[in-house]
Simulated assay, not measured.
Amino acid sequence: MRLTPGETTTATVKLTLGGKVSFTATDRVSGAAVGRVCPVFEVLGHGGLPDGYGDCTDGPGKATSGSVAAGTYEMYAAAPTGYGDQQAAARIKVMPGKTVTAPAVLLDKAGTITGVVTEAAGKPLSGINVAWSAWGDAGPAWDTDTNAQGRYTITGLDPYAWPLLFSGAGYPQQWSGHGGNCFRAETVTVRPSGTTTYDLTPVAGSTLTGAVTAPAGATWRIHAFNAATGDQMGTFDSYNAGPGGTKKPNLTLG
């Protein structure tokens, strides 16, 4: 669409009919309904979870989403305090004008992962971001940072095997096991109401350099995605480049 200075341009947007998803959430052991369980729908291979959600279950543990574009999704359930977060194994196919029923969300008591991140010489690394989801466009979410002693703690995790994403202090984003592919990451198994320890010494990455040509004052951002998983693994933007783009794009990747 081309805009003309001082004139109003009319645009016609064709919308397609979406569908909805209904689901229930219960305690796996007692079968009791669980309220305030909120769904997040992700396109397969998109990578990363957003940092917001809605359409949560009511007191009887039932909910129906708002309209979702037709397609196939994975559903992630963000659970209230005391429960872990359960990912539905089945794929959910949303069809225009219809409400489909997702597999029941069965919630277990939450577990915890804790550990220490250190450099090769053994010195603790503070301010390392540790997340159990790939980054979104706005940066890390579903995460925590290591403290002055290099220790991190993530609570509220469902009892299964989790990959963790580490980044910061000059090190590239890397999954547990030091790789850039979450499907091949070393996973950390969480126990219901228990604590699992996972320590890491991050490794250096490789550097991708280049140049960006843009009008003066323009804002821009470069993302590097893992081709297999869709996860964002590096970013560089006009803010990092500094005034006049004095710093060339320089992505450090795992």
Rank of each mutant, 00 (worst) to 15 (best):
K123P: 13
T9F: 15
G52Q: 10
G244V: 02
H46K: 07
A218M: 05
G217A: 04
T144Y: 09
G115M: 01
G234A: 08
F23H: 12
C56D: 06
P80E: 13
T72P: 15
I222Y: 09
T195P: 01
M233S: 13
S133W: 05
K109S: 15
A216K: 10
G47R: 09
V68W: 12
W135E: 14
W142V: 13
A70Q: 06
Y171V: 04
P5I: 03
A120R: 13
A141V: 08
S206F: 15
P202Q: 01
N129L: 14
S238P: 01
L251D: 06
A211W: 12
L251C: 12
I128P: 03
Y239C: 15
T10R: 15
A70V: 05
D55E: 09
E7R: 00
P103Q: 02
G194S: 04
G136T: 07
A120C: 09
N181M: 07
W135L: 13
K109W: 11
G210H: 06
L157Y: 02
Q87M: 10
G254Y: 08
E7L: 07
T9P: 09
G179N: 04
D143I: 12
V100I: 12
T114W: 09
G61P: 05
K109M: 15
N147A: 04
N250C: 00
T12H: 10
P124S: 01
G234Q: 04
H223R: 11
A77I: 11
T146W: 02
A228H: 11
G48N: 11
V40T: 15
G18Q: 04
P96W: 05
G217C: 02
P96M: 03
Q87S: 11
Q87T: 10
T219A: 13
S22G: 00
D137N: 12
Y73K: 04
S65P: 12
G59H: 05
L157H: 02
P96G: 03
P192Q: 02
G45T: 01
M95N: 06
